[in-house]
């Protein structure tokens, strides 16, 4: 067992995250064939660097985001757009369909990375400090919303009607507290972990982006496996993805109650109004230029 190949697996999730537990399970499931070394908190490879590290042979496994991939393959920007997927189930269905296989093939061919599946981590919701009523994108006009840095993320903010601003994640809490920003967008578990609920008054359940990363292994490692090993590897990936997704969905449901208990207003806006506004903005922007022909319609039809 000494000559088992070592698989370095780096991610930015924290050691206490649900996904950290999932990765530990994965390591156990493939432990007959591989020695999987887990690194959390972006300590081995910094956020956004996993893909390049895998391409250069300095990392065997990681969970690059669709945004990271679209940096190198612009067609991927379609899955970073607002209101593409209705929920986690829809996203999984699409990624398992021909559409997903087409997207995965691009990553294999162009980047030498094998995608094992989409790892759901929560749906992004708008979390605001001011006590305003938000039903349509127009209600977010003039609202300063912190979004992650980068023009794709900032465009996402505009696509739901807000004034997006990039800000370091670690500064968001103070900025909300002092009013430097009006709000931020994140999945509910992040709002909980970063204690944003302490300094905000409401969560608008916009569901504007289904958040997921791509559980991936370097193609070299994958190709060196026997067919049986590949099967075990893929089965382990499927198992932890299913488990982690279930855990996240349960956590999100539980957190709605928790936030209400903390005195926050948690409500659904007119999602159809948001969806129409966002898809229109994307179609009239340079972002949709690179989207594969007919893919949006195929996804909308599913």
């Amino acid at each position: 067992a000494q000559d088992k190949p070592t698989v370095r697996f780096s991610s930015v999730v924290s050691e206490t995250d649900i996904r950290a537990e999932a990765f530990q399970r994965f390591a156990d499931l493939v432990s007959d064939d591989f020695n999987v070394e887990l690194y959390f908190g972006g300590t081995l490879v910094a956020q956004g660097g996993e893909l390049a590290a895998m391409q250069r042979g300095n990392l065997e496994m990681g969970i690059p985001s669709p945004q990271d991939i679209s940096n190198q393959i612009p067609a991927w920007s379609i899955v970073t757009s607002a209101y593409l997927f209705d929920d986690a189930e829809h996203m999984q269905e699409v990624m398992a369909s021909e559409v997903g296989q087409e997207l995965y093939a691009m990553v294999e061919e162009q980047l030498g990375v094998k995608i094992l599946g989409p790892l759901y981590f929560g749906t992004r919701q708008v979390n605001l400090k001011p006590e305003i009523d938000v039903q349509t994108p127009e209600d977010l006009n003039g609202v300063t919303l912190r979004m992650p840095g980068g023009d794709a993320w900032q465009f996402l903010g505009r696509a739901i009607g807000a004034n997006p601003t990039p800000l370091a994640y670690s500064e968001v809490y103070t900025a909300l507290q002092t009013g430097a920003i009006d709000g931020q967008d994140n999945p509910l578990p992040n709002d909980y972990n970063m204690k944003f609920y302490e300094v905000t008054s409401q969560i608008v359940l916009t569901n504007h982006l289904v958040g997921f990363d791509l559980l991936s292994v370097s193609l070299d490692v994958w190709n060196d496996m026997t067919p049986e090993q590949q099967e075990t590897f893929q089965a382990a990936a499927d198992e932890i993805i299913a488990w982690s997704t279930e855990q996240h969905l349960a956590r999100e449901a539980e957190l709605v109650e928790f936030f209400e208990g903390e005195g926050l207003r948690v409500y659904e806006p007119d999602r159809e109004a948001f969806r129409a506004y966002a898809q229109d903005m994307y179609l009239n922007s340079e972002f949709s230029d690179s989207w594969p022909e007919g893919m949006l319609d195929a996804i909308n039809a599913m």
């Binding site: 924290s14 206490t16 908190g41 670690s170 809490y173 103070t174 972990n193 970063m194 204690k195 302490e198």
Partner: peptide, 10 residues
Amino acid sequence: YALISDTSIG
């Protein structure tokens, strides 16, 4: 620290 420990920043 708040980030790694699940503690309130405030």
